[in-house]
Amino acid sequence: MSDPDGGRGVSDALHDPTTADSRGGQGYPRSDGDRDLPLETYVLSVNDRDLPVDDAWVGESLLYVLRERLGQPGSKNACEQGECGSCSVLMDGAVVASCCVLAADAVGSAITTVEGLTGEGELSDVQRAFIDQGAVQCGFCIPGMIVALTDLLDRSPAASELEMREAISGNLCRCTGYGRIFAAFRQVQQERADARA
């Protein structure tokens, strides 16, 4: 869990009152390396397809690469520090925050985004439940919520309400207050239980 204290850089200068001299500069030591971005070329496996990433800055997050290079903007960028879940994707079957994954290191892993949860034009039962229960308002948190709840219901079909809340405790929503999202979870759980019966 990151604790953004210590270290120096652009945003630190925004916080740091101790710059005794009045030069603004952002406190980052300047070197030639700053002028050019170190680049990397690699291939990622996203939604069962191998997609090339060419000459990308090595520091790009998986979230950035998905959104800006690979045409998969479904995962969202609400905080880019692992504190909101809007960027959630499945990586080798586990839900992770793609903003905290170095894209160039995601090579060799199977990545599934919200766009890859269903076939073209289809809606999963989880997605339908979100629609039916009024769980969507602005929608920014929704892809991450859908990924996290899809994963939970697949892993733990009989999850209790408390387990569900804990499983999505890393997915923030600012619009709904979560009530209708919990209702969507219950709808899917009930439907799947009925189908098994």
């Binding site: 479904g74 997605q127 629609i131």
Partner: peptide
């Protein structure tokens, strides 16, 4: 139901 909910849940 919201008309924009389907694209929102699909990430589209």
């Amino acid at each position: 139901l919201r008309p924009d909910a389907p694209p929102k849940v699909r990430g589209e």
